[in-house]
């Protein structure tokens, strides 16, 4: 594994909204022993689609994993953002140790 300090990144993934989608997307990372630092998901619009936000640590496997995510049948699009994207900073308040 790489010893350089790694930057975090945020992925924004548009998907079809059904029961198996989270398993497809999240499983793709876990099968590659790729740790997810944060997950958020909510339906979009009429509920036929959802958006999954993932926070990951970037490493050399990232481009390959992204290409694999794009191949999933239920994925419509993937956008890559910097680790400072507000979606997770906004959630941080709910994750303080004292609750």
């Amino acid at each position: 594994m790489t010893t350089q300090t790694r930057a975090s990144a945020v992925l924004e993934i548009d998907v079809n909204n059904h029961a198996g989608v989270m398993a497809h997307v999240v499983g793709l990372f876990s099968r590659r022993a790729y740790n997810l630092e944060g997950i958020a998901c909510l339906p979009v619009g009429d509920g036929r689609h959802s958006r999954i936000w993932l926070k990951v640590m970037e490493d050399e496997r990232m481009p390959q994993v992204l290409r694999q995510v794009e191949k999933l049948e239920d994925v419509q699009g993937v956008r890559l953002h910097g680790g400072d994207h507000p979606v997770f900073t906004g959630l941080a308040a709910h994750f303080r140790q004292d609750g």
Partner: peptide
């Protein structure tokens, strides 16, 4: 569905 997820190109329930 869960068992076949990582070994199929795609799967449906």
């Amino acid at each position: 569905y869960g068992l076949s997820l990582p070994i199929t190109k795609h799967n449906f329930l």
